[in-house]
């Protein structure tokens, strides 16, 4: 399944080096994205999902910096390029942005400039990566709008983003991201600001576009429902680190990490007893600036082992290809056995 690997992130670390101290927004994340597949990245807000996306595009704002790791993008001819070594504003990176990787944001309202028409912004995106004259670009833009299911594309081109409804706006945003025909679409909470019906429509649209173009999608969300519907593979993140990774079946039917299990428990189930209290994860996400020592999750973990989880960082356990769990409860056989014993 991993033959068509498009993007490979290895041990990515993005820190914000402010005067007040270092915030480790992303602290060692690894995953692969393959053509035609959808990778879901899930986690609570502030866990570094969005910074991961911005790091891949190399547009992390100051004082953020990628301090370690590799972002390998497989070029069309099959050779990999490490994006980390590229100049962030150099010609190559700019051709990657938009050209190879498209980005869709959470907030379609503010993702478009309020004083430029949709057509203006769309044709700009097209002409940045393709030599077309204005009329041709406009035609292409109208085609794109048709493709994403906007009813009156020609009229919409002359409209401003705030004249569109939320759903149409997000469709226009997807058209914008797909304008230069990228091979990877990064969607950062694409449906969070939309109502449920529109959410489903947008997700359907993304899935069908993916099928047509055998495009890879990296879907960043805090919504496990969205992940269950769309993702093939899943990375669970907590405080800038990966805690578990696997296929969508692995994550939903065989979750290992206590954090993943807690997340899944906190989804309301249809067959739950009426008026039963929904289990929540105790405490709140600490600021990455004050990351707990050892396993970052230990202060909120119901299964934390004192003297171990709060001191030592857990190793990554890889039981199978593409399956990873980062937890003291797993991996080391003896430890795991002793845990089993303690549990029973």
């Amino acid at each position: 399944m991993r033959t068509d690997r498009l993007l490979s992130v290895r041990n990515l670390k993005t820190y914000f080096l402010a005067d007040e101290g270092v915030t480790k927004a992303v602290d060692g994340v690894s995953f692969d994205v393959s053509a035609g597949r959808t990778l879901g990245i899930v986690g609570e807000s502030g866990c570094g999902k969005s910074v991961t996306a911005l790091s891949i595009l190399r547009i992390v704002d100051d004082p953020g910096r990628i301090v370690d790791g590799e972002i390998l993008l497989t070029k069309n001819d099959g050779t990999p390029v490490d994006l980390v070594t590229q100049r962030p504003n150099g010609k190559f990176m700019r051709s990657v942005r938009g050209g190879e990787i498209g980005l869709v944001f959470q907030e379609p309202m503010t993702s478009f400039s309020p004083v430029h028409t949709i057509g203006n912004q769309l044709t700009e995106a097209i002409r940045l990566h393709e030599r077309l004259n204005k009329a041709e670009a406009r035609e292409r833009a109208a085609d794109l709008l048709t493709m994403v299911g906007i009813p009156r594309p020609a009229a919409t081109l002359d409209q401003y983003s705030w004249e569109l409804s939320g759903g149409l706006r997000q469709r226009a945003m997807i058209a914008h991201a797909l304008a230069p025909d990228p091979r990877l679409l990064i969607a950062d909470e694409p449906t969070t600001a939309l109502d449920v019906t529109t959410q489903a429509q947008i997700l359907d649209l993304m899935m069908s576009l993916q099928e047509e173009r055998s495009m890879a999608i990296m879907l960043i969300t805090h919504d496990l429902g969205v992940i269950a519907e769309t993702a093939d593979d899943v990375v669970v993140m907590y405080l800038g680190r990966e805690v578990e990774q696997g296929s969508v079946e692995n994550i939903f039917y065989d979750p290992q990490h206590p954090y993943t299990r807690a997340l899944l428990r906190s989804i309301p189930a249809l067959d739950a007893a009426p008026k039963a209290k929904l289990p929540a994860i105790t405490g709140s996400v600490p600021h990455p600036f004050d990351r707990p020592s050892g396993c970052s999750f230990h202060p909120r973990c119901s299964e934390a082992i004192e003297g171990l989880c709060d001191i030592e960082e857990p190793e990554t356990w890889r039981p199978a290809e593409g399956r990873e769990v980062v937890c003291h409860l797993f991996g080391d056989r003896e430890m795991a056995v002793s845990i089993e014993g303690r549990r029973s």
Binding site: R94, G99, S111, E124, A125, L128
Partner: peptide
Amino acid sequence: PYVTTARAKGL
């Protein structure tokens, strides 16, 4: 965010 959008499209 629209500035990020603009940068993300390769400007």
